[in-house]
Write a protein that binds this DNA or RNA. Sequence first.
DNA 1: ATGCGGCGTTGATTTAAATCAATGATCATG
DNA 2: CATGATCATTGATTTAAATCAACGCCGCAT
Lengths: 266, 266
Amino acid sequence: MFDTLKARNSPTAKCNAQILRFERQEKNTVSDRYIMPGSPCSSCSARSKAICAGLSDDEMDGFSRNIRTRLIKAGNSIYREFEKANYFYTVVSGEIRLANLLGDGRRQLTAFKSAGDLLGEHNGGIYQSDAEAVCDAVVCQIPIKILEKYTNEVPAMRVTLNTKMQNELCDLRHHAILLGRKTPIEKIATFLTARSENCEWSDDDKAEVVLTMGRSDIADFLGLTIETVSRTITKLKNMGLLLVPTSHSIVITDQACLKRLAENEQ
Amino acid sequence: MFDTLKARNSPTAKCNAQILRFERQEKNTVSDRYIMPGSPCSSCSARSKAICAGLSDDEMDGFSRNIRTRLIKAGNSIYREFEKANYFYTVVSGEIRLANLLGDGRRQLTAFKSAGDLLGEHNGGIYQSDAEAVCDAVVCQIPIKILEKYTNEVPAMRVTLNTKMQNELCDLRHHAILLGRKTPIEKIATFLTARSENCEWSDDDKAEVVLTMGRSDIADFLGLTIETVSRTITKLKNMGLLLVPTSHSIVITDQACLKRLAENEQ
DNA sequence: ATGCGGCGTTGATTTAAATCAATGATCATG
DNA sequence: CATGATCATTGATTTAAATCAACGCCGCAT
């Protein structure tokens, strides 16, 4: 299934490779609830970026006994807004979108979360958004009680968690500025620039950005319509700042200029 | 100065009363840096809502020795974006806006903070926004090091601070939804509904909302222009949901309907 | 191979909000 | 109390993005 040409060349090739490993271990998983045998943490590719980064090997051992690894198929949700919150999640691979719906179907995405990021923000014990897999993803499920216990007992964990929350606040603030005041060109430029920070490759002034999500996810993240997203990317292409080899791969050919557009420096 | 009829009836009457007290203690303060003598905390009106809520009287005593109280005149700033962050601030009275500017002068407000709220969010040791007084305000200045020390040593402080951050995340997420997807009517309805939660008075379906900020602050908070804010308030007035006795005082006459508009429930 | 469905792009048109402009209200100042 | 400045409202016009619509491309299933 994942051996097709498409899968190997697709934007999700990397996370699919990881999923392949899981599927080999226990084949024919039907649901997206995949409970991995043994302790995966020692070889976890996301560990250094995740909240468990600060744990000693011993602490990690105890911690890992309480967590489960789940494979989430593209489009499926991990949790939904208004559900009772029992778990946090660390993204191991793939990409998750946080979505909120208005009564009439309008949608706003507030974040994309990838390897190392923490999911499960709640308030009053209730999740605040839908968390859905943009592409096949692996997440690691941590009971809230356990995380609370460790943040109380392990100062390093507390620091890491606090930093993650600070970063999330910072991201959301910048996103509010983008949504409230930036033009479509600035929005797309900001989005692509941010994505280029952990991109596939980059040299001198070029970088390849892989978009795991479709145009409608980008539109709902940036507060635009898919048509405006499409037109704006075309515009940037015509300005000579981008190449668009496939709709899911964008090569930035002038990072400096794109960044200037993003930040509206005169 | 504060004894005029205007001051007594103005939206800022309450915080002015507090400032009066300070001015009596040490008259003719010229700057807005006001260092209060002795320990004010025992009688602080914001204490129950602030991060110091969880401290015992003894802990509070030690804590208060490290903090200073400052009076910020309307329009003045407490700190600016890109400045090195050395302090957190608790709002004692009045109202503070968090503002971000784009290169060409466009502005986005990300929050209004009032009594009990914590200010000073920073990332990498740098403040992320300008914090400016909407009306005369009193804040209490807490060295970051001290707050860190107390959060490490006092679990109650940790919990309170964590709750505050969660709430802030929650607010920002909701604000992103508003900025990205809501119509002007929904934006204003949401804003007024939120404000009515800690309003001057309310009975059955009515509530008086006092707006300490001007139309341009509302516009920059909601991602609109002042003209659209004005027109939209007029529209809601014509729909019979509001009265606008003065531009800074709004009486909601149908809270249920306004809330329905805000949340886009069909 | 063929047809279908989803996704992305592009074009034409509409529309809602921004902009431009004028006037009216409110507040501080001499 | 008169005066100017700032702030809010309202009207006219413009404009940028949404909406409506058509088409092309690609992968998928029959």
